[in-house]
Write a protein that binds this DNA or RNA. Sequence first.
RNA 1: GGCGGGGUGCCGGAGCGGUCGAACGGGGCGGUCUUGAAAACCGUUGGGCGUGCAAGCGCCCCCUGGGUUCGAAUCCCAGCCCCGCCGCCA
Length: 412
Amino acid sequence: MIDLKAARAHPDVVRAAVARKGGEQLFDELIRADEEWRQLQTQVDELRARTKLKGKPTPEQLEELTRIKGELKSLEDQLDRAEASMQHFWDRVPNPPDASAPDGWDEGDAEEIRRWGEPADFGFEPRDHLDIGAGLGWYDQERGANVSGSRFVYRMGDAALLELALYRFALDRLVARGFVPVLPPVLVREKAMYGTGFLPTDDVNLYYIERDELYLTGTSEVALAGLHMEEILAADDLPLRYAGYSTCFRREAGAAGKDTRGIFRVHQFDKVEMFSYTRPESSRDEHEYLLSVEEELVQELGIPYRVVNVAAGDLGPSAAKKYDIEAWFPGQQRYREITSTSNTTDYQARRLKIRFRTGERGPDLVHTLNGTAITARSLVAIIENFQQEDGSIAVPPVLERFGAPTRVGAAG
RNA sequence: GGCGGGGUGCCGGAGCGGUCGAACGGGGCGGUCUUGAAAACCGUUGGGCGUGCAAGCGCCCCCUGGGUUCGAAUCCCAGCCCCGCCGCCA
């Protein structure tokens, strides 16, 4: 949710910002509904004040009370409806994008910030991860589809070990930086999903267990953000940094026909996710920090990549600013997203009611940020970038001590 | 799944249906005392919303949502959560 007080004080400014995400209609509706709600609120408050009596009422007072209560009843019904309407739009107006997020609406409008590393010159026709793993029994799409449907894949053999090594590697590096490692729940209640901003706008992409009224999380961001919901944190504890490892579930509605090959886009994958709670004035620095951690991890693995600043219109509802790291994928001959870090400012914190004690004034909302450390997609990048002509993979040495096989797919 | 107990402020813990946003203790903060600290003493200390430049004023909140009542933290119903015991099963 956006800052309503700021929206009332400077509607033009907020409207213009939100318009870069296509939210100007919703914003106008919100302002209109808010005015109606406030007007009714004032009326109701005044009436209620008149019903406040100490001790037993006299017969005349009783009569007066009955009259006021009748009036209150209908006014309160109106107030409830007005509030519901206001809340409806408030839930949907997106977080205003940061001024430094470029204009635009899709991937092509992202601004490239820098490149690192050189795509390898193979001297042979590079294959994609599926071709490479084919003879090695790494990825079984057919049986995955048979058991679970399309976009479900078995990862087996050395591919499984490599993946686990990658997660353990990321966790190790994050713990060394002071992140608290977490194995979070992947089934969450509606309020956690709502608070993180995936509901109500993104519900087609969520798996839902109707019987227990629980949602499967598409990222551990949900459980990590929910970890402190409805809490007032101590200022001295900030920033709080967590590293969550979990399986992620996404319906990928609207992605039909896209990236159908291999494990690039699947309904279920694993991820190590960073999540920070900060003071408002620190979130920009924290965002740069999360990006730097992501880059260090990718650099340590030696994967060539570029960093892009995602266009305002391509941000989700929660993010004010987002950096993607796009790795070079030789099998596709282009850069594709492997990690993403967002500053959601106070948007999630307001929904989740996460505040911190300021000392002077009352409690203030924290800012929350998230960033991918490693996903299975990074493994795809490794397989494709470090493939050898003989079909083996030159595994990044750092992964060995985390259980990766030293040479995989080797002919000899 | 069955039975029982319980959910009150930062924590512990009271609360005949009206004078309770809430006793008392602890903690925090400010002060007195002290060379400094401790102890002692005094004071202070929940959140949200509306309105106002502000001081302030008003409304709402004692797990959540309904209900009874002129009036509910206190009574009734439903839900959620926590604790204990039994059963079943990873």
